[in-house]
Design a protein around this nucleic acid. Structure first.
Lengths: 206, 206
DNA sequence: GTCTATAATCCGATAGAC
DNA sequence: GTCTATCGGATTATAGAC
Protein backbone atom coordinates (compact mmCIF):
# COMPACT_ATOMS: atom_id res chain seq x y z
CA UNK A 1 0.00 0.00 0.00
CA UNK A 2 1.93 2.94 1.28
CA UNK A 3 4.88 0.64 1.19
CA UNK A 4 5.85 2.24 -2.07
CA UNK A 5 5.25 5.69 -0.63
CA UNK A 6 7.71 4.90 2.15
CA UNK A 7 10.24 3.78 -0.40
CA UNK A 8 9.78 7.01 -2.31
CA UNK A 9 10.25 9.06 0.84
CA UNK A 10 13.42 7.19 1.75
CA UNK A 11 14.83 7.80 -1.72
CA UNK A 12 13.75 11.43 -1.55
CA UNK A 13 15.74 11.90 1.66
CA UNK A 14 18.80 10.31 0.08
CA UNK A 15 18.42 12.40 -3.04
CA UNK A 16 18.06 15.60 -1.04
CA UNK A 17 21.13 14.74 1.02
CA UNK A 18 23.13 14.28 -2.17
CA UNK A 19 21.79 17.06 -4.34
CA UNK A 20 20.25 19.59 -2.00
CA UNK A 21 17.19 21.58 -2.89
CA UNK A 22 18.52 22.80 -6.19
CA UNK A 23 19.29 19.42 -7.68
CA UNK A 24 16.09 17.82 -6.51
CA UNK A 25 13.72 16.83 -9.27
CA UNK A 26 10.95 14.30 -9.70
CA UNK A 27 12.82 12.71 -12.58
CA UNK A 28 15.89 12.04 -10.48
CA UNK A 29 13.74 10.82 -7.65
CA UNK A 30 12.01 8.40 -9.98
CA UNK A 31 15.41 7.19 -11.14
CA UNK A 32 16.45 6.52 -7.54
CA UNK A 33 13.26 4.63 -6.81
CA UNK A 34 13.56 2.63 -10.00
CA UNK A 35 10.38 3.78 -11.69
CA UNK A 36 9.46 6.53 -14.13
CA UNK A 37 8.45 10.01 -13.09
CA UNK A 38 4.68 9.76 -13.69
CA UNK A 39 4.48 6.79 -11.36
CA UNK A 40 5.43 9.05 -8.47
CA UNK A 41 2.24 11.04 -8.89
CA UNK A 42 0.23 7.98 -7.87
CA UNK A 43 1.69 8.42 -4.38
CA UNK A 44 2.41 12.12 -4.11
CA UNK A 45 0.27 14.88 -5.54
CA UNK A 46 3.20 17.18 -6.26
CA UNK A 47 6.86 17.77 -5.74
CA UNK A 48 6.28 20.06 -2.80
CA UNK A 49 4.35 17.39 -0.94
CA UNK A 50 7.40 15.17 -1.23
CA UNK A 51 9.61 17.91 0.15
CA UNK A 52 7.29 18.51 3.08
CA UNK A 53 7.68 14.87 4.00
CA UNK A 54 11.46 15.16 3.67
CA UNK A 55 11.46 18.06 6.12
CA UNK A 56 9.21 16.11 8.46
CA UNK A 57 11.67 13.24 8.32
CA UNK A 58 14.50 15.64 9.17
CA UNK A 59 12.55 16.81 12.21
CA UNK A 60 12.05 13.28 13.40
CA UNK A 61 15.71 12.39 13.02
CA UNK A 62 16.74 15.53 14.87
CA UNK A 63 14.26 14.77 17.62
CA UNK A 64 15.44 11.17 17.93
CA UNK A 65 18.99 12.46 18.20
CA UNK A 66 18.11 14.97 20.92
CA UNK A 67 15.92 12.69 22.98
CA UNK A 68 18.89 10.47 23.73
CA UNK A 69 19.89 13.24 26.11
CA UNK A 70 17.03 12.18 28.36
CA UNK A 71 19.20 9.26 29.41
CA UNK A 72 21.34 11.71 31.36
CA UNK A 73 20.86 11.33 35.10
CA UNK A 74 20.90 14.97 36.19
CA UNK A 75 19.39 18.13 34.70
CA UNK A 76 22.86 19.47 33.91
CA UNK A 77 23.89 16.21 32.31
CA UNK A 78 20.73 16.17 30.23
CA UNK A 79 21.03 19.73 28.96
CA UNK A 80 24.69 19.19 28.18
CA UNK A 81 23.98 16.04 26.26
CA UNK A 82 21.20 17.83 24.44
CA UNK A 83 23.48 20.72 23.53
CA UNK A 84 26.18 18.43 22.24
CA UNK A 85 23.59 16.29 20.48
CA UNK A 86 22.32 19.40 18.72
CA UNK A 87 25.85 20.16 17.61
CA UNK A 88 26.68 16.68 16.38
CA UNK A 89 23.43 16.35 14.47
CA UNK A 90 24.01 19.64 12.69
CA UNK A 91 27.63 18.87 11.85
CA UNK A 92 27.06 15.29 10.81
CA UNK A 93 23.92 16.02 8.80
CA UNK A 94 24.28 19.63 7.66
CA UNK A 95 21.73 19.30 4.89
CA UNK A 96 19.11 17.89 7.24
CA UNK A 97 19.89 20.64 9.72
CA UNK A 98 19.57 23.36 7.12
CA UNK A 99 16.29 22.06 5.81
CA UNK A 100 14.73 22.53 9.24
CA UNK A 101 15.08 26.27 8.78
CA UNK A 102 14.34 26.43 5.08
CA UNK A 103 11.92 29.19 4.26
CA UNK A 104 8.72 27.79 2.76
CA UNK A 105 8.95 29.76 -0.47
CA UNK A 106 12.29 28.12 -1.19
CA UNK A 107 10.38 24.99 -2.07
CA UNK A 108 7.58 26.76 -3.82
CA UNK A 109 5.17 27.03 -0.90
CA UNK A 110 3.44 29.99 0.67
CA UNK A 111 3.72 29.03 4.31
CA UNK A 112 4.82 26.11 6.40
CA UNK A 113 2.14 23.43 6.74
CA UNK A 114 0.67 22.91 10.15
CA UNK A 115 2.19 19.46 10.29
CA UNK A 116 5.66 20.97 10.53
CA UNK A 117 4.58 23.68 12.97
CA UNK A 118 3.58 21.12 15.58
CA UNK A 119 6.80 19.17 15.19
CA UNK A 120 8.62 22.38 15.80
CA UNK A 121 6.64 23.10 18.97
CA UNK A 122 7.65 19.73 20.37
CA UNK A 123 11.31 20.64 20.05
CA UNK A 124 10.67 24.02 21.67
CA UNK A 125 9.00 22.30 24.60
CA UNK A 126 11.95 19.95 24.93
CA UNK A 127 14.40 22.83 25.31
CA UNK A 128 12.12 24.68 27.68
CA UNK A 129 11.97 21.58 29.87
CA UNK A 130 15.73 21.22 29.89
CA UNK A 131 16.19 24.84 30.96
CA UNK A 132 13.48 24.71 33.60
CA UNK A 133 14.92 21.74 35.40
CA UNK A 134 18.35 23.35 35.35
CA UNK A 135 16.91 26.44 36.98
CA UNK A 136 15.19 24.29 39.58
CA UNK A 137 18.41 22.44 40.31
CA UNK A 138 20.32 25.68 40.77
CA UNK A 139 22.59 25.44 37.73
CA UNK A 140 20.96 28.23 35.75
CA UNK A 141 19.82 31.58 37.06
CA UNK A 142 16.17 32.17 37.68
CA UNK A 143 14.09 33.55 34.82
CA UNK A 144 11.59 32.58 32.18
CA UNK A 145 12.67 29.18 30.85
CA UNK A 146 11.32 29.92 27.40
CA UNK A 147 13.23 33.18 27.07
CA UNK A 148 16.45 31.67 28.39
CA UNK A 149 16.09 28.71 26.07
CA UNK A 150 15.65 31.12 23.18
CA UNK A 151 18.89 32.93 23.98
CA UNK A 152 20.81 29.67 24.24
CA UNK A 153 19.21 28.33 21.09
CA UNK A 154 19.95 31.52 19.18
CA UNK A 155 23.60 31.28 20.15
CA UNK A 156 23.87 27.63 19.19
CA UNK A 157 22.00 28.03 15.92
CA UNK A 158 23.95 31.15 15.00
CA UNK A 159 27.31 29.58 15.67
CA UNK A 160 26.41 26.46 13.75
CA UNK A 161 25.03 28.48 10.85
CA UNK A 162 28.20 30.53 10.64
CA UNK A 163 30.28 27.36 10.71
CA UNK A 164 28.21 25.65 8.05
CA UNK A 165 28.38 28.77 5.88
CA UNK A 166 32.16 28.62 6.10
CA UNK A 167 32.35 32.04 7.74
CA UNK A 168 34.31 30.75 10.71
CA UNK A 169 37.84 29.84 9.82
CA UNK A 170 37.86 26.62 11.78
CA UNK A 171 38.06 22.98 10.80
CA UNK A 172 35.44 20.48 11.74
CA UNK A 173 37.66 19.07 14.46
CA UNK A 174 38.26 22.50 15.95
CA UNK A 175 34.64 23.50 15.82
CA UNK A 176 33.45 21.32 18.68
CA UNK A 177 35.98 23.05 20.93
CA UNK A 178 34.99 26.49 19.66
CA UNK A 179 31.35 25.64 20.33
CA UNK A 180 32.01 24.53 23.88
CA UNK A 181 34.12 27.57 24.61
CA UNK A 182 31.50 29.91 23.24
CA UNK A 183 28.71 28.25 25.22
CA UNK A 184 30.78 28.60 28.34
CA UNK A 185 31.37 32.27 27.57
CA UNK A 186 27.65 32.78 27.24
CA UNK A 187 26.98 30.96 30.49
CA UNK A 188 29.50 33.09 32.35
CA UNK A 189 28.58 36.39 30.72
CA UNK A 190 30.58 38.81 28.67
CA UNK A 191 30.23 42.19 30.32
CA UNK A 192 32.06 43.41 33.41
CA UNK A 193 30.13 43.84 36.68
CA UNK A 194 30.66 47.59 36.43
CA UNK A 195 28.99 47.78 33.04
CA UNK A 196 26.18 45.49 34.12
CA UNK A 197 25.46 47.75 37.09
CA UNK A 198 25.36 50.69 34.72
CA UNK A 199 22.82 49.24 32.33
CA UNK A 200 20.75 47.96 35.22
CA UNK A 201 20.49 51.50 36.56
CA UNK A 202 19.57 52.64 33.10
CA UNK A 203 16.85 50.03 32.73
CA UNK A 204 15.30 50.90 36.08
CA UNK A 205 15.14 54.57 35.16
CA UNK A 206 12.79 53.89 32.28
CA UNK B 1 31.10 52.57 -20.56
CA UNK B 2 30.12 50.66 -17.52
CA UNK B 3 27.15 52.93 -17.23
CA UNK B 4 25.01 50.16 -18.61
CA UNK B 5 26.67 47.64 -16.33
CA UNK B 6 25.69 49.74 -13.34
CA UNK B 7 22.14 49.87 -14.57
CA UNK B 8 22.10 46.09 -14.95
CA UNK B 9 23.45 45.66 -11.43
CA UNK B 10 20.82 48.01 -10.01
CA UNK B 11 18.07 46.07 -11.77
CA UNK B 12 19.61 42.79 -10.63
CA UNK B 13 19.43 43.94 -7.01
CA UNK B 14 15.80 44.94 -7.42
CA UNK B 15 14.96 41.68 -9.13
CA UNK B 16 16.67 39.66 -6.42
CA UNK B 17 14.84 41.60 -3.73
CA UNK B 18 11.54 40.82 -5.41
CA UNK B 19 12.06 37.27 -6.58
CA UNK B 20 14.84 35.86 -4.45
CA UNK B 21 17.38 33.44 -5.79
CA UNK B 22 14.86 31.03 -7.18
CA UNK B 23 13.02 33.48 -9.38
CA UNK B 24 16.15 35.14 -10.68
CA UNK B 25 16.82 34.59 -14.37
CA UNK B 26 18.71 36.40 -17.07
CA UNK B 27 15.55 36.74 -19.10
CA UNK B 28 13.69 38.49 -16.31
CA UNK B 29 16.70 40.65 -15.64
CA UNK B 30 16.80 41.67 -19.28
CA UNK B 31 13.13 42.55 -19.06
CA UNK B 32 13.77 44.81 -16.06
CA UNK B 33 16.64 46.56 -17.80
CA UNK B 34 14.61 46.97 -20.98
CA UNK B 35 16.80 44.94 -23.32
CA UNK B 36 16.87 41.36 -24.53
CA UNK B 37 18.73 38.60 -22.75
CA UNK B 38 21.73 38.27 -25.08
CA UNK B 39 22.56 41.93 -24.57
CA UNK B 40 23.36 41.22 -20.95
CA UNK B 41 26.23 38.98 -21.96
CA UNK B 42 28.04 42.01 -23.40
CA UNK B 43 28.41 43.24 -19.82
CA UNK B 44 28.44 40.11 -17.73
CA UNK B 45 30.06 36.83 -18.70
CA UNK B 46 27.47 34.71 -16.91
CA UNK B 47 24.57 34.69 -14.53
CA UNK B 48 26.76 33.85 -11.59
CA UNK B 49 28.93 36.89 -12.18
CA UNK B 50 25.83 39.02 -11.87
CA UNK B 51 24.89 37.34 -8.61
CA UNK B 52 28.38 37.85 -7.22
CA UNK B 53 27.97 41.56 -7.82
CA UNK B 54 24.57 41.50 -6.14
CA UNK B 55 26.10 39.94 -3.05
CA UNK B 56 28.92 42.49 -3.15
CA UNK B 57 26.33 45.24 -3.24
CA UNK B 58 24.60 43.71 -0.21
CA UNK B 59 27.91 43.75 1.64
CA UNK B 60 28.46 47.38 0.85
CA UNK B 61 25.00 48.38 2.00
CA UNK B 62 25.42 46.44 5.22
CA UNK B 63 28.82 48.01 5.80
CA UNK B 64 27.51 51.50 5.15
CA UNK B 65 24.74 50.83 7.64
CA UNK B 66 27.14 49.59 10.30
CA UNK B 67 29.77 52.27 9.88
CA UNK B 68 27.31 54.91 11.03
CA UNK B 69 27.95 53.48 14.47
CA UNK B 70 31.40 55.05 14.36
CA UNK B 71 29.69 58.36 15.05
CA UNK B 72 29.10 57.18 18.61
CA UNK B 73 31.31 59.00 21.09
CA UNK B 74 32.27 56.17 23.44
CA UNK B 75 33.20 52.53 22.84
CA UNK B 76 30.00 51.37 24.50
CA UNK B 77 27.91 53.77 22.44
CA UNK B 78 29.61 52.60 19.27
CA UNK B 79 29.14 48.89 19.89
CA UNK B 80 25.55 49.46 20.88
CA UNK B 81 24.83 51.45 17.78
CA UNK B 82 26.56 48.79 15.72
CA UNK B 83 24.50 46.05 17.32
CA UNK B 84 21.25 47.89 16.73
CA UNK B 85 22.36 48.80 13.22
CA UNK B 86 22.99 45.14 12.51
CA UNK B 87 19.47 44.36 13.70
CA UNK B 88 17.74 47.09 11.74
CA UNK B 89 19.57 46.25 8.53
CA UNK B 90 18.60 42.59 8.80
CA UNK B 91 14.97 43.32 9.62
CA UNK B 92 14.51 46.06 7.04
CA UNK B 93 16.35 44.21 4.27
CA UNK B 94 15.93 40.51 5.05
CA UNK B 95 16.77 39.35 1.55
CA UNK B 96 19.97 41.35 1.49
CA UNK B 97 20.85 40.00 4.91
CA UNK B 98 20.21 36.42 3.88
CA UNK B 99 22.27 36.70 0.74
CA UNK B 100 25.33 37.55 2.81
CA UNK B 101 25.26 34.02 4.16
CA UNK B 102 24.17 32.25 1.01
CA UNK B 103 26.21 29.16 0.35
CA UNK B 104 28.12 29.45 -2.93
CA UNK B 105 26.60 26.35 -4.51
CA UNK B 106 23.16 27.88 -4.13
CA UNK B 107 24.05 30.16 -7.03
CA UNK B 108 25.90 27.53 -8.99
CA UNK B 109 29.39 28.27 -7.76
CA UNK B 110 32.01 26.08 -6.19
CA UNK B 111 33.37 28.51 -3.63
CA UNK B 112 33.03 32.13 -2.72
CA UNK B 113 35.16 34.42 -4.90
CA UNK B 114 38.01 36.18 -3.19
CA UNK B 115 36.32 39.51 -3.76
CA UNK B 116 33.61 38.56 -1.27
CA UNK B 117 36.07 37.02 1.17
CA UNK B 118 37.85 40.33 1.63
CA UNK B 119 34.62 42.24 2.11
CA UNK B 120 33.76 39.76 4.77
CA UNK B 121 37.10 40.22 6.54
CA UNK B 122 36.49 43.94 6.72
CA UNK B 123 33.27 43.37 8.65
CA UNK B 124 35.04 40.91 10.94
CA UNK B 125 37.69 43.48 11.68
CA UNK B 126 35.03 46.07 12.42
CA UNK B 127 33.45 43.88 15.10
CA UNK B 128 36.79 42.92 16.54
CA UNK B 129 37.64 46.60 16.89
CA UNK B 130 34.34 47.34 18.60
CA UNK B 131 34.92 44.57 21.14
CA UNK B 132 38.53 45.47 21.77
CA UNK B 133 37.82 49.06 22.65
CA UNK B 134 35.03 47.96 24.97
CA UNK B 135 37.45 45.67 26.76
CA UNK B 136 39.96 48.49 27.03
CA UNK B 137 37.33 50.82 28.41
CA UNK B 138 36.29 48.29 31.04
CA UNK B 139 32.81 47.51 29.74
CA UNK B 140 33.56 43.98 28.56
CA UNK B 141 35.59 41.38 30.37
CA UNK B 142 39.12 40.68 29.28
CA UNK B 143 39.66 38.04 26.63
CA UNK B 144 40.42 37.56 22.97
CA UNK B 145 38.43 40.20 21.11
CA UNK B 146 37.97 37.96 18.10
CA UNK B 147 36.55 35.09 20.13
CA UNK B 148 34.25 37.36 22.11
CA UNK B 149 33.06 39.04 18.94
CA UNK B 150 32.30 35.62 17.50
CA UNK B 151 30.12 34.68 20.45
CA UNK B 152 28.20 37.95 20.25
CA UNK B 153 27.88 37.69 16.49
CA UNK B 154 26.66 34.10 16.71
CA UNK B 155 23.97 35.11 19.14
CA UNK B 156 22.84 38.07 17.04
CA UNK B 157 22.90 36.13 13.79
CA UNK B 158 21.13 33.16 15.31
CA UNK B 159 18.37 35.24 16.84
CA UNK B 160 17.85 37.16 13.62
CA UNK B 161 17.85 33.98 11.56
CA UNK B 162 15.25 32.41 13.81
CA UNK B 163 13.13 35.51 13.57
CA UNK B 164 13.41 35.72 9.80
CA UNK B 165 12.55 32.03 9.50
CA UNK B 166 9.39 32.70 11.46
CA UNK B 167 10.40 30.31 14.24
CA UNK B 168 10.03 32.93 16.95
CA UNK B 169 6.44 33.78 17.65
CA UNK B 170 7.01 37.51 17.83
CA UNK B 171 5.92 40.40 15.67
CA UNK B 172 8.35 42.75 14.05
CA UNK B 173 7.64 45.40 16.67
CA UNK B 174 8.24 42.98 19.52
CA UNK B 175 11.41 41.60 18.05
CA UNK B 176 13.60 44.64 18.75
CA UNK B 177 12.74 44.29 22.43
CA UNK B 178 13.35 40.55 22.39
CA UNK B 179 16.71 41.18 20.76
CA UNK B 180 17.79 43.73 23.36
CA UNK B 181 16.67 41.52 26.22
CA UNK B 182 18.51 38.54 24.83
CA UNK B 183 21.71 40.52 24.30
CA UNK B 184 21.50 41.73 27.86
CA UNK B 185 21.03 38.17 29.07
CA UNK B 186 24.14 37.14 27.19
CA UNK B 187 26.11 40.04 28.60
CA UNK B 188 25.09 39.16 32.15
CA UNK B 189 25.48 35.40 31.82
CA UNK B 190 23.00 32.60 32.24
CA UNK B 191 24.51 30.18 34.71
CA UNK B 192 24.60 30.55 38.48
CA UNK B 193 27.94 31.27 40.21
CA UNK B 194 27.79 27.84 41.81
CA UNK B 195 27.56 26.06 38.47
CA UNK B 196 30.27 28.26 36.98
CA UNK B 197 32.61 27.34 39.81
CA UNK B 198 31.85 23.70 39.16
CA UNK B 199 32.70 23.75 35.47
CA UNK B 200 35.77 25.84 36.13
CA UNK B 201 37.07 23.15 38.46
CA UNK B 202 36.26 20.60 35.82
CA UNK B 203 38.13 22.51 33.13
CA UNK B 204 41.23 22.94 35.25
CA UNK B 205 41.35 19.20 35.92
CA UNK B 206 41.84 18.43 32.26
C1' DG C 1 0.18 0.92 -10.52
C1' DT C 2 3.33 1.50 -14.00
C1' DC C 3 4.43 2.43 -18.51
C1' DT C 4 5.36 5.47 -23.10
C1' DA C 5 4.70 9.69 -25.03
C1' DT C 6 4.09 14.28 -24.79
C1' DA C 7 2.39 18.81 -23.59
C1' DA C 8 3.80 23.28 -22.01
C1' DT C 9 7.29 26.06 -19.94
C1' DC C 10 11.28 27.68 -18.48
C1' DC C 11 16.34 28.09 -18.44
C1' DG C 12 21.54 29.69 -19.86
C1' DA C 13 24.10 30.72 -23.51
C1' DT C 14 25.51 31.40 -28.50
C1' DA C 15 25.56 32.67 -33.76
C1' DG C 16 25.26 35.96 -36.85
C1' DA C 17 22.93 40.04 -38.93
C1' DC C 18 22.76 44.94 -38.32
C1' DG D 1 25.99 47.09 -28.47
C1' DT D 2 21.66 45.31 -29.45
C1' DC D 3 18.77 42.59 -32.07
C1' DT D 4 16.32 37.93 -33.90
C1' DA D 5 16.54 33.24 -33.95
C1' DT D 6 17.86 29.22 -31.98
C1' DC D 7 20.41 25.36 -29.71
C1' DG D 8 20.24 22.08 -26.11
C1' DG D 9 18.75 21.25 -22.00
C1' DA D 10 16.01 21.18 -17.86
C1' DT D 11 11.61 21.06 -15.37
C1' DT D 12 6.43 19.72 -13.57
C1' DA D 13 2.67 17.44 -14.75
C1' DT D 14 -0.86 14.95 -17.63
C1' DA D 15 -3.15 11.53 -21.18
C1' DG D 16 -4.03 7.17 -22.29
C1' DA D 17 -2.52 2.32 -23.13
C1' DC D 18 -1.57 -1.86 -20.57
Amino acid sequence: MSDQRDKILACACDLYLESGFEGFSMRKLAGCVGVTAPALYRHYASKERVLVDVIGEAYQRMAAHLYRALEGRTPVERIRMAGMGYLTFAVEHPRLYEVLFASPDLMGMQEAPQELESQWCALGQFWKDRVRECIDSGALRDGEPEAIAMTMWAHAHGLISLYLSGMLRVSREEFAGVYRTSVRRMLAGIATPAYLAEIETEASHR
